[in-house]
């Protein structure tokens, strides 16, 4: 028996919005420690890794490890039927071929449930090696989304250059060149507005805008985003999900032809 309950459907809606542009379907691996999802996008350029800890749920029970392959388009249709403040419960029997998603209004006067067919997906888990990153940048998630959106107008690629002074995002194309520099913030009143750079050595890497923009669909989950970079290894873009876990996106760099 698997049962996981969250106080607000809005969190699940935001999580789904953060992955459904990259993934058509995905397997949710459930165990007593929580829910994990790891999947590559169709073109195998990026990897999504979602961790939801069991202690972050209002109720969590998982008697036996369970892998639930879900069509994310179908899940989106179901979540559209929930009000943001509704409680949401996911339930499945051991070895079931369906999952039930139930919404309850705050006053318990409306209860709806949706049974969704599960899929058998070919799971390909990748081993992610530990990396000592050269640069780790923490910045407001909205600012990162804005920069990715703005630079995508100018080029398919964005160059991220990080030094101890700051981080520079550049794009160059037919229109010309765009550069956006962010300096490390001195003192800020609000932690969520800070730009913080931890640098071992400077790094310059090139990434496809289209994927960065897909990652920023996670912006509503978190006030801050963390970018971890190292020469010739995938970028890690991490959004914390408060009291519940995190979503990490890995993006392979572009290299000169």
């Amino acid at each position: 028996m698997f049962e996981a309950r969250l106080g607000q459907a809005t969190i699940l809606k935001k999580i789904l919005d953060a992955i459904k542009d990259l993934l058509n379907e995905a397997t949710f691996d459930c165990s007593d420690s929580g829910i994990q999802l790891q999947a590559m996008d169709n073109s195998h350029v990026s990897l999504v890794s979602l961790t939801l800890r069991s202690d972050g749920f209002d109720k969590f029970r998982c008697d036996r490890n369970l892998s639930m392959g879900m069509n994310l388009g179908s899940m989106a249709k179901i979540l559209k039927c929930a009000n943001n403040e509704d409680n949401v419960t996911m339930k499945a029997q051991d070895n079931a071929d369906t999952v039930t998603i139930m919404f309850e209004s705050a006053n318990q006067e409306k209860v709806s449930d949706y049974e969704m067919k599960l899929m058998n997906l070919d799971q390909e888990h990748l081993g992610i090696p530990e990396t000592d990153f050269s640069c780790v940048v923490r910045m407001p998630a909205m600012e990162f989304a804005r920069i990715c959106r703005d630079l995508a107008q100018f080029s398919e690629s964005v160059v991220i250059c990080c030094t101890k002074e700051g981080v520079k995002f550049s794009a160059s194309g037919d229109v010309g060149t765009a550069n956006i520099k962010l300096a490390q913030t001195g003192s800020v009143d609000k932690e969520e507005e800070a730009v913080i750079i931890e640098m071992q050595e400077p790094v310059t890497l090139t990434f496809a805008c289209r994927y960065l923009n897909a990652f920023t669909k996670a912006t509503p989950l978190s006030t801050q985003v963390q970018l971890s970079m190292c020469a010739d290894v995938p970028l890690v873009v991490e959004y914390a999900i408060k009291d519940l876990g995190h979503i990490r996106y890995y993006l392979a760099p572009k290299i000169e032809d």
Partner: peptide, 12 residues
């Protein structure tokens, strides 16, 4: 050139 993520992370 866009590299594939599988060229960095090996299949388990």
């Amino acid at each position: 050139m866009q590299k594939s993520i599988t060229s960095f992370f090996k299949r388990k």
